[in-house]
Design a protein around this nucleic acid. Structure first.
Lengths: 235, 235
DNA sequence: AAAATAATAACGAACGTTCGCTTTTTTCTG
DNA sequence: CAGAAAAAAGCGAACGTTCGTTATTATTTT
């Protein structure tokens, strides 16, 4: 019962981080107490302090160990597709797929931003910087099919565009999300690849091409009734 | 000294909301105490409770009164431009301009999401639903120049894409942001209008067209050194 | 036997909220 | 317009609870 197994203390430490992660995600940092962490880790309050000196130390450990880059970067690094379009499609689907499976991933960063004003972000980036650069190489290998945008612009627009898929998922009124249907991601990818303008169209099939004009006209016909029905479905 | 002026209690109530808003933005909901709110509103702790029954009531009042839609929707409703492209450009510049001037706008929604799990979002949308629909009409009037995407997809991609401009502004390592330069927004708009693919290019000048390939190759030459220099600039 | 880990109990401080009282403001009335 | 009556607003202290943290003591693991 030794050798490859973790030492007792390391197991407990991992249990504390597990408990803290779950609670932070559900209630935020200030909304979570040390007593809750201790109880969920099957430990007494005092016992926790044998492994972490403070509550904030627990947060930093959680942040460094569970930050979303850790989960997202391998997905992007191994994305498939020879052409730029196929690669972007695959990478976007992987990214959003993972984000929607694990809605907590970005949550961690938002807690850091909101409750700490990003005070630990420099520490975080110092921790993951070595993993960032190989990612650039993957993108640059497919650069031939892309317009000559700068690498930071590309990275930021790609991540931002599909991160926003997650954010709007949470922020949008349910009734609007329902109108969007299940192929919303395909429509997002399409916009990212080809833009919203109609000028250079005729690039093949367009998913998400619905009867939206008639919807809008319906709104114009009787805006008040639409507003009221929308209002009621919000609640 | 009466008539058009506010009653005394309403002034104080507004002062409480001002104070609470500032503190919530800086420290989050759970990170802010009623005593801090009282002090910043030049009031005693007990006095606050003459105007709000609880701390959470203050939060809801702040959320309903200061939510970003209130500031953003008039900007979009009065955006100019006859063609779809001109309109999108103008609307995006207005949106991001306002977001970067007032970095707190989205913060409010994130606090709601993180510290309350969005418990008040239905209330919020019930509150602003009547303002949402006129916005749809504005977009549908310019629909001719856009590809036939559904209205919700258009709304979500537009807001999401440029909201993400704000989010990545806060999340990205400073060294990457610096690489992007000041014309990053123009590049964002361009991507939203025309996409990232090179297939339908030759649409005129392209801002942000830098020597990014050489940068990437520099990284490939000596990845470790780049990583270390990047690491050091993070801190 | 030594070192690491856990439990117990307690600390002072801060939390949201309530209370009784005084002062100010508004409204009613002559 | 004055002044009393009513209502609203503000104060200061205290409530009971929970917070993060820390000693001290007991129990396991090495």
């Amino acid at each position: 019962m030794s050798g490859e197994s973790l030492r007792k203390g390391e197991q407990t430490q991992a249990r504390i981080l597990d408990a803290a992660y779950d609670l932070f995600m559900a209630q935020g940092y200030h909304g979570t107490s040390m007593r809750q962490i201790a109880e969920r880790a099957d430990l007494t309050l005092g016992g926790v302090y044998n492994h972490f000196a403070s509550k904030e130390d627990i947060w930093v450990a959680v942040l460094l160990e569970r930050h979303p880059y850790r989960a997202v970067m391998p997905l992007l690094r191994t994305a498939e597709g020879d052409t730029a379009e196929a690669f972007v499609r695959n990478a976007a689907q992987r990214l959003v797929g993972e984000l929607s499976k694990r809605k907590d991933l970005l949550h961690l960063m938002f807690i850091e931003l909101i409750e700490f004003n990003g005070a630990h972000i420099p520490t975080l980036y110092a921790h993951i910087a070595p993993e960032l650069l190989p990612l650039f190489d993957v993108v640059s290998a497919r650069a031939a099919g892309l317009r000559p945008l700068s690498l930071p612009v590309l990275a930021r627009s790609f991540l931002g565009f599909f991160f926003s898929y997650y954010v709007t998922e949470a922020l949008m009124p349910p009734v609007l999300r329902a109108l969007m249907g299940d192929d919303a991601l395909d429509a997002f990818i399409d916009i990212y690849l080809h833009g919203v303008l109609a000028d250079g169209v005729a690039r093949g099939e367009l998913q998400g091409a619905t009867t939206w004009r008639s919807e809008a006209e319906m709104h114009r016909e009787n805006p008040l009734e639409s507003a009221q029905s929308a209002t009621s479905s919000f609640c």
